[in-house]
Each structure stands twice: as C-alpha cells, then as structure tokens.
Design a protein around this nucleic acid. Sequence first.
RNA 1: GGGUCAUUAGCUCAGUCGGCAGAGCACCUGACUUUUAAUCAGGGUGUCGAUGGUUCGAAUCCAUCAUGACUCACCA
Length: 491
Amino acid sequence: MENLDQLELNELMLQRRRKLEELKAKDIKPYGNKFSPTHHTADIKHNFEEFVGKEVSLAGRLMIIRGQGKASFAELADMTGKIQIYLKKNIIGEDLYELFSSLDIGDMIGLTGEVFKTKVGEITIRVNVFELLSKSLRPLPDKYHGLKDKEMRYRQRYVDLIVNPEVRDTFVMRSKILRTIRNYLDQQGFLEVETPMMHPISGGASARPFVTHHNTLDIDLFLRIAPELYLKRLIVGGFERVYEINRNFRNEGMSYKHNPEFTMLELYQAFADYNDMMELMENLCCHVAQEVLGTTKVTYQGHVIDLTPPWRRLSMIDAVKEYTGVDFDQIQTDEEARKAAKEHGIEVDDTMPRGKIINEFFEARVEEHLIQPVFIMNHPVEISPLAKRMVEDSRLTYRFEAFIFSWEMCNAFSELNDPIDQRERFLAQVAQREAGDDEAQMMDEDFVRALEYGMPPTGGIGIGIDRLIMVLTESHSIRDVILFPTMRPEK
RNA sequence: GGGUCAUUAGCUCAGUCGGCAGAGCACCUGACUUUUAAUCAGGGUGUCGAUGGUUCGAAUCCAUCAUGACUCACCA
C-alpha cells in the first residue's frame, strides 16, 4: 500500500483510497482489463424502438448515483452521451449490489442489461451484471454547476471534458473541420506534406522565434514560425499543389486570439496567382461551414457572418480611403505620408516609408470595421518581402488578407519567384534586423538558390486554423479550441 | 510589459462595520425496489493563495509576491 502520509490528500480522497483497499481485500480488481461493449449510449437513445427488450453491453463512467434502498438508478456516460441505468438487488444479486453501493461518482464500469423505458419515459438499462473497470480516487466537480474555474479547466482538461459536454462537442467539431479541409484539398489534387518544424534559419513570416539547441550538431535551431520557404522549395521541385496543416511557434504575447503554438494551413499552387487563392479561400470557408454547420451564415458574438462567396474585394489603399478619407494614390512621398499620419493622430517614426504608413493607417482605422468577410488586397512591398510586385505599381504587391470579425484569417499572395528581387528583399529585411527589428526576416541563401533553379508563378495562402475554428464554434478564446493551451507551470 | 479584478470546504459560491468559518452540491451514517439536480433524518470535512505589517483581535485593512481572468500594447 502506498504511504498515505506522503500525499496531500483531503478527506474525500482518503475515503476513496480506503474503498480501494476494501475492494482489494475482497479480491475485486479495481482496475479491470478489456471489456467489450456492444453499443454506445447514443445508439440506444436514438434507436430505442430497435433496442427495447434487447440485451446490450455498455461501458462508461458513473456520473450520478441515485440509491433507493434495494434498487438504484445511476447515469452512465460514454463518449456519445449519457444513459440511465437501473440496478435491482434481486436481479444482480446481493454481492454485486453491495459492490455497486460502494461505488463512487467517477468510477468506470462495464455492464450488460436490457433496454426498457421507465414509467415516466426515461430510456434505461436494467442491469443484469456489471464489473468495475476503473476506481476513481478523486471527486468530480459539482454535478450541477460543473467546473467553471478557467485555470483548472485549461490545466486539467481531462476533468473539463468529463463534466462539461460542450467542450467535447467543440473538439469533435475541430476534428471535423480539419478533416473537411483535408478532404476538400485532396479532392482538388493537393498533396499534404510535412516540412521541418526545426529551422536553422527562421523565415517565412515576421515574428520572434523560439530557439532550441541540437547537441550533436552543436547548433541552435528555431522552432518554425512558418513553413512557407520549405513548401515553396517543393514547388521548385515539381510538386505543383502542396499543403501542410501543422503547428507554428511564435515567441510573442498571448491573448484571447494568440497562443504560442497555433495551427496553420499553408498551401501553394503552381501556375496560379492570388486571384485563385481568393477563390480558394472563400470556397473553402463556405464549404467547411456548409459541411460542419449545415449553413454558410454563422453567428459570432451577436453578428451574423455570411460566408457565401464572392466576398468583397478592396485594395488596402481604397480601404484606407473609405474609412479615413486619406487617399494614398495622391500621397507619393514618405514625407507626405508621415505628415498625413500625424494629422490623423497615427503614431509613426521618422524612418517609416510610405508603405508602412499605409499599413499603420489600415491597422489603426480600418481593421475594426471589417466584420463581414472581405479581401484586403495589394499591400505595400515594404511589409511584403515574399510577395510578387504588381505590374501596375511596383510599390505594391499581389497580396491579400481576408478579414472576418476584424480578425486576419489568412495571408496570401502571388509568390515572388524572381530570385534577384528576392535576394534584395532579404537584404532589406536584414538591414531592418540590424537596425533593431528582431521580427524582420533572416537571409536564406538556400531558398534564393532554389528560386534560381526556377520556381513557376505560384499562388500561396496561409490560413489561421484556430481562428477559423473559433468563428465556426462560437468560441470566444483561442484556449477554448486548443485542448492543452500554453500555461505557466503550476507552483 | 501596463491597467482592472479575482483567489474562502472536493466543486459552485456567500461572508455586512475588523469580533466563534458559512450555504448548496459532493461525501459519511441510517431509511427507502421506477428515481432523474430523487427524497427523508442526522453529521462540517477548512493552511480563508503565500509572506510580512497594522491591531487587544485580520478571510476582512496595508505592503510585497504567486497564479489566473479580463483588457491595452505586440502579434496571426
């Protein structure tokens, strides 16, 4: 027997450990082996007429016990839901009934019994025989109020999942959304690939990376902030349609919509451009919503958001003009741009070029208004080091971001495939980095070398999967769609 | 990183002006063979987040710290 003195146990936990010893003394195994249920609770609940009078075997956790002397009711929960069970002493016998009477809420059992309906119409299993599968040594939270403490729900997600069924629903939905996305892309000829999570050079996005160290090679590696540069190497290599759905890691602040590790879909399509990516984005979101929700109009925080294509398309400069009246088509120099920013109370520093100031206007004055899906297009080249320049205006790029509920849901562009321009953009980033911007990108010579072999014109897109899931599941925090969100360690 | 708030029984929460630590559920004992937040009778199980301080006396007032939530900044 374990030394109880060394554990910090409250009275309830001690009681359950004493029961455990009593079971062992009676030669009842408290932790069973295999049990083979014939059905799940939902099968019976949804098809009562088919099951009535028949014998079934179920396995699950006792959630409520209502003893009534020589008979007892209880609720058994499995992955599909709950069902009431009924145990009578003169059916299951004295020994088994005594065992049942000693069980606690949270214990897991396997049982066999007949399906019937009680006089008030509750579908119930009349148990003929049962066995203990796992003794629970800790009390569960309040049967009525559940577990509300957010810290405990995130830290002990297993308890959250046991007592709050809607949490399980959210993660089932998450799984369905991911499967639907994969099926959709697979049907269109995209190949799912896996590229490195540990990068010798951090690239593909503007963000601070996590650093780790490989002992044998004695080199620092960065957890990836984006798979972009590797996926484009695959386009060079001849895979014409690839995607990856996996984690990115960014060493930055946490909030209701930021977790240090988050899931991103990145996709590249050879011979396509950003117009194709816009169509793909709106069609994919619409398809997923239709498949998992049965509608393309989703309600999020009181707004009905209509995902039906086509979505509005608006250049960033036109968006700034629409919401602030400032027309950057008429503002050509960095000095004029900074003057306009100061007039509108937007903070800029004296080194900021026109392109960055357009973006500052956009983020400060436009984003908050973008509730319905909209593509914001043609970003300045200064903030788009991997996107192809527009023929119409070489200071802008064929890039877009989709906004839904003011959140950036994706980032996409016609990929820069000119290796000489790419090298210059990297050098500009390196200069910014040396000037103190630790989110600017690093030079990736191998990536430039790959482009020198020739990359076809390519459309690429990155979609923040967690945020898409938040909107589709009406979750208000990213932590509600990530099973084990990042937390400070206990104690 | 800044601001605001929270932390009391296993869970959900009260706790007034600084004066014996409370409720519901859970749990324990007993009754009860169709209950369903079962019911009935009895039982309170606690390092009031931690450490200092003020005070005759602190869950309560003050300071610091810890953890979390919300929010702002940064970011996707």
